[in-house]
């Protein structure tokens, strides 16, 4: 294992993040505050509680998941697309590293960034609402697994993308709807039966449900299924990355 290489890639990726740490901190704080003004105050004044949880607190896990998923994908996809675009990827390709090391470096850095943002949102949210976390370890585990899985997915998107439009396409066309329709801001039980059934095909639902369970002990689906779903998603992404590096698809001519 070339751990020096993992560290080198990781630190190089993180250095870009640290260069703009102010922005990275400020923007989730602002957007979270806005969500609380709009959803918490405007809608929350009409919906008192969902499944026994005050609405303001109820949306926190969904809010964190929404940002963490989007950030993981965009960080990781940009992280690998950028060196491909400007040509610096040659160095990684000609270095004595295997796919695991490259992936750990890039995906690890992207996941770290989104984890940081998730925690900033959690911190900001706790200024607005009273939060008690019932299963803190499960909460952290869900958060880290989500960061890693979606960073892996973003990594694949970044390798697949041939231009900037494609880079935006997947998050915009696929992930945003899945996240919004995954019960970020409502409980699935609030939907008509037909849409409840449809929603159960949305993988993000299982994530948000599990994450919410870690906070409040209430869930749309059993927590074991949530964990299973994210583990499967993680493995599918990992296998895809392994296949990409084995065949050189879109990275080696």
């Amino acid at each position: 294992m070339n751990t020096a290489a993992i560290k080198a890639i990781y630190l190089n990726e993180m250095s870009r993040f640290f260069r703009t740490i102010g922005q990275s901190f400020i923007s989730p704080v602002i957007s979270t505050s806005l969500y609380f003004v709009v959803f918490g105050a405007a809608i929350g004044s009409r919906i008192q509680e969902v499944e026994g949880v005050p609405y303001g607190a109820f949306i926190v896990p969904g809010l964190i998941m929404l940002s963490v998923i989007m950030q993981s994908i965009s960080n990781a996809s940009f992280g690998i697309y950028f060196p491909k675009f400007i040509g610096t990827v040659f160095e990684v390709l000609s270095a004595p590293v295997n796919f695991m090391e490259i992936t750990l470096g890039y995906v690890g850095a992207a996941a770290t960034k989104s984890l940081f943002i998730g925690l900033v949102i959690l911190g900001t949210a706790s200024l607005f609402v009273d939060l008690t976390i019932e299963h803190p370890f499960a909460m952290v585990a869900f958060l880290i697994l989500t960061c890693l899985s979606f960073a892996l997915m973003g990594f694949i998107v970044g390798i697949w993308a041939k231009n900037f439009e494609q880079l935006q396409l997947v998050p915009l066309l696929i992930v945003t709807p899945l996240v919004f329709l995954g019960g970020s801001f409502y409980s699935v039980t609030m939907l008509p039966p037909f849409w409840q059934t449809v929603t159960h095909f949305n993988p993000v639902l299982y994530l948000i449900s599990g994450f919410r369970w870690a906070f409040f002990g209430v869930a749309d689906v059993p927590v074991g299924i949530s964990l299973g779903a994210i583990a499967i998603f993680f493995l599918v992404c990992l296998t895809t990355v392994w296949w990409i590096f084995r065949t050189g698809w879109r990275i080696r001519d």
Partner: peptide
């Protein structure tokens, strides 16, 4: 373009283990 010259060299060494 925005990387610092000496960091570039540290990165290369690291990549080669």
């Amino acid at each position: 373009p925005f990387s610092i010259v000496e960091n570039n060299l540290h990165l290369s060494r690291g990549l080669f283990g």
